[in-house]
Simulated assay, not measured.
Amino acid sequence: MPLRQAVTAAGLITGYAADSLFGDPRRGHPVAVFGSWAGALERRWWADSKPRGAAYAAVCAGAATGLGVAAQLSTRRRPFARFALTAAATWVVLGGRGLASEGREMARLLDTGDVPAARARLSHLCARDATELDSAELTRAATESIAENTSDAVVAPLLWGAVAGLPGLLGYRALNTLDAMVGYRSLRHRNFGWAAARLDDVVNLVPSRAGAVLTAVSAPLAGGQVRASLRAWRRYGSHHPSPNAGQVEAAFAGALGLRLGGTNSYGGEVEDRGTLGDGRAPQPVDLRHAVRLSRVVGAAAALVAAAVAVAR
């Protein structure tokens, strides 16, 4: 096995372990720093224009990817430095532990009937308008967000790190962050954020479907069934308006025996997400099952990413 591939694989596993044990860095999180810089640039560059937005996305994502390329080139003959940088980059771009913590906290708030606090807390998971949501809708929103973010914040960065190393890790996280910032179809970002949203769709096409397969394979470890998860994925994965989000959400729905999807509001824009799954409506206890499934899927993705890195 070439040393370079082994170093990348070891860095990915170590970074995944660091995220699982410690979660996000407490201060000076590089993703937050990137978001602040990108936000400041957006305020200066914004125009109701797709070309202007495309240039913005290219500059922001290109800067992050370029940093990864420079780090990759500077460590090509320094295996320990390559390992350390890969582990550090993997740690900061992953969000598995933070996602699980938010899911458990939402479950606790809903279990105790603290709907106002749960509405406020939902913003930590997604940008959905929660002002009118009741306990059932909050539970559904949180469950869907755990499923979608298992792909976006765990599976996808690991796979991009496996196939493209440091540029893949940093470039993917930059695009995903831009999508969260400007990709929603609000009046301000309908045109300016179009390129960021479409690029994020493209880079998640394969990871989202890999995440759905890993969800099905992992289902028994979270009390679910492989066949039910695969059946829901095949039947409902394309019902979602996003080409990617519905893949893992449908697989989670089948694995947990739930029915997800419905009408959601984002910044005043109402969107019908279709029906995902043919089970019952989710309850707060299902959030804990979703968290368990998310953690198992993340561990499986880390092993697959390491294997891909070695094979590459």
Results as ranks from 00 to 15, higher is better:
G98H: 13
L276S: 04
L138Q: 00
A142W: 04
R188I: 01
E137R: 15
A147M: 06
T263Q: 13
T86Q: 02
G168N: 01
A253N: 12
R77F: 14
F34N: 01
Y184E: 07
A299H: 06
A281V: 12
N176L: 07
A147D: 03
E148Y: 11
A180Y: 05
G254V: 12
A87M: 06
A311E: 03
A180F: 07
R26V: 13
V304H: 03
H189L: 02
L158I: 10
E148L: 10
A216Q: 06
G274H: 08
A307E: 02
A18S: 12
A136C: 04
R26N: 01
G62R: 12
P25M: 11
R173T: 10
W46Q: 09
A216R: 03
T75R: 05
D24P: 00
G274E: 09
S20C: 11
P116I: 07
A38K: 06
A38S: 14
G171Q: 05
P207Q: 10
R295Y: 03
R119L: 05
P282S: 05
V248G: 04
A64W: 05
G274F: 11
M106A: 09
V310L: 15
P25F: 09
A6L: 15
P220Y: 11
T65E: 02
V304Y: 01
M181Q: 15
A6R: 13
L187F: 05
R235C: 07
V285S: 14
Y56W: 06
R121D: 01
M106H: 03
L230H: 08
V203F: 12
A290Q: 04
M1Q: 12
P157D: 02
E148F: 09
W194L: 06
A232I: 10
R280S: 14
G15L: 08
R77K: 12
A55G: 15
R185I: 04
D19T: 10
A136N: 10
A228F: 02
D278H: 10
L178Q: 03
A311L: 15
G28E: 03
P220S: 13
G165C: 01
R76C: 11
N149P: 02
G211S: 15
A162N: 06
R209Q: 10
D278R: 12
L178F: 08
E249S: 10
P220G: 13
P284V: 07
I13R: 15
S265P: 00
A142K: 02
V206C: 06
M1N: 08
L175G: 01
H29S: 06
L138D: 01
M181R: 12
G68T: 02
A18W: 14
Y236K: 06
V154I: 15
G257H: 07
A164W: 02
L85N: 05
L258N: 05
L94S: 00
A251F: 10
A120C: 00
D272V: 09
Q5G: 15
V31A: 13
L293Y: 07
A40P: 00
A250L: 06
V92H: 11
V206T: 13
H289T: 13
N244D: 05
L158W: 08
A141C: 04
P51H: 12
F34T: 05
L110E: 00
M106F: 01
C126Q: 00
L187S: 14
V33E: 05
L3P: 00
D19K: 08
